[in-house]
C-alpha cells in the first residue's frame, strides 16, 4: 500500500513561499548575481525588510550606527551575510516547528538544517567549490520533506522501525518501501512547487542516494550536501528517532578525495561556524 498520493496532497497544503523569497533564492542561484535587483526585491517586501533590519541592528553584529535600509545593510555586512539573513527569516518559521513523526522537538530540524548548511560551506571551501550561496541554501533545505512525511511516519512508525531492524536498510529506503515516497523526494517536490530552480532541489532529491544522481552538473553539490548531512547526523546535531540509521556513500568520499582525519576537521569547524551564527538563526 502506498501513501504517495496522500503525501503529495499534503505537500500542496503546505504554506507557500513568498514570491519575494522565491525570486531571491532563484537570483542567488544564478551565476551572475545582480546585487541591485536583490536589494530592490527585498525592499518591496515589508515583512522581510522589517525582519532583516531587526537582525542587522541586533547586538550580534555590533554595528555603530542604526541601519535603516537594505542597501546600507548590504554595504555594511556584505551580500553573503544579508543573503543568509533573508533565507533565515524566510524559512525558519516553517522549519522551527516540532516534527512529531521523527520525534524532533521544536527547533531540532532547524538546528540540523543550519548545521548541515555550515558543514556544507566548510566542505565547499576545502574543495574550492565556487557557488557558495547555492551550497548554503540547498543544504539548509535538504530535510524539508520531513515536514510533509511527519504524520505518516508517526502513524506507521512501528512498521518502519521493525523493517529497519530486520532489513538493516537505510531509513529513507524503508520510508519509500512503506509509504511509497521518502523524505528526500518529498522535499524536492516541495521545492519544485515553491518554484525553486533545479540546481537547488537536486541536492535535496539525492541527499541520501548521491550515486543515483543523473545530472552531472549537480553531482558535486549533491556530494557536498550528502557528506555534510552524514557528519551532522553522526555529530548528533538535531537528530530525531531515525537516529543514525542512514547509509553514507563511500563513493562521495572518494569523489571528493577526502581522508578520515579531514572529516573530523570539518566537524570541528562546523561547531565554530554554528557558534557564530547562533544569534542570527536563533538556535
Amino acid at each position: 500500500m502506498s501513501f504517495k498520493k496522500e503525501i503529495l496532497e499534503n505537500i500542496k497544503a503546505l504554506p507557500t513561499m513568498s514570491t519575494t523569497t522565491s525570486k531571491i533564492v532563484t537570483l542567488l542561484g544564478s551565476k551572475d548575481i545582480d546585487m541591485n535587483k536583490i536589494i530592490q526585491l527585498i525592499q518591496f517586501d515589508p515583512a522581510i525588510t522589517t525582519n532583516v533590519l531587526k537582525l542587522v541592528n541586533s547586538s550580534y553584529f555590533g554595528l555603530q550606527k542604526q541601519v535603516t535600509s537594505i542597501k546600507q545593510a548590504v554595504v555594511l555586512l556584505g551580500l553573503n551575510q544579508v543573503h543568509r539573513i533573508v533565507i533565515a527569516v524566510s524559512f525558519s518559521p516553517l522549519m522551527n516547528n516540532k516534527i512529531d513523526g521523527y520525534d524532533m522537538p521544536s527547533g531540532a530540524l532547524w538546528e540540523h538544517s543550519v548545521a548541515t548548511a555550515v558543514a556544507s560551506e566548510t566542505i565547499a571551501k576545502m574543495i574550492k567549490f565556487p557557488d557558495n550561496d547555492m551550497v548554503f541554501t540547498a543544504a539548509l533545505l535538504h530535510d524539508v520533506g520531513k515536514i510533509a512525511l511527519s504524520t505518516f511516519v508517526d502513524e506507521y512508525y512501528n512498521r518502519i522501525e521493525e523493517d529497519v531492524q530486520n532489513s538493516n536498510e537505510s531509513f529513507e529506503v524503508v520510508e519509500k518501501k512503506i509509504l511509497g515516497i521518502d523524505h528526500a523526494e518529498a522535499g524536492a517536490v516541495i521545492l519544485k512547487n515553491w518554484g525553486i530552480p533545479q540546481n537547488l532541489f537536486m541536492p535535496v532529491l539525492w541527499h541520501h542516494d548521491p550515486d543515483a544522481c543523473t545530472i552531472d552538473d549537480a553531482q558535486k553539490l549533491v556530494d557536498i550536501v550528502h557528506l555534510a548531512d552524514s557528519l551532522c547526523m553522526a555529530g548528533g546535531m538535531g537528530v530525531g528517532r531515525d537516529g543514525l540509521q542512514y547509509r553514507p556513500s563511500e563513493n562521495v568520499v572518494k569523489r571528493l578525495k577526502f581522508k578520515a582525519i579531514m572529516l573530523e576537521s570539518i566537524m570541528s569547524q562546523t561547531m565554530t561556524g554554528i557558534e557564530n551564527l547562533k544569534e542570527i538563526f536563533e538556535i
Binding site: N168, S170, S230, L231, M233, A234, G243, L244, Q245, Y246, R247, P248, E250, V253, A260, L263, E264, M267
Partner: peptide
C-alpha cells in the same frame, strides 16, 4: 559512540 550504517568504516568517529 554510535555510527551511521557505515560498513566500510569510513565515518568511524564514534
Amino acid at each position: 559512540c554510535s555510527s551511521l550504517l557505515d560498513e566500510k568504516g569510513f565515518f568511524k568517529i564514534g
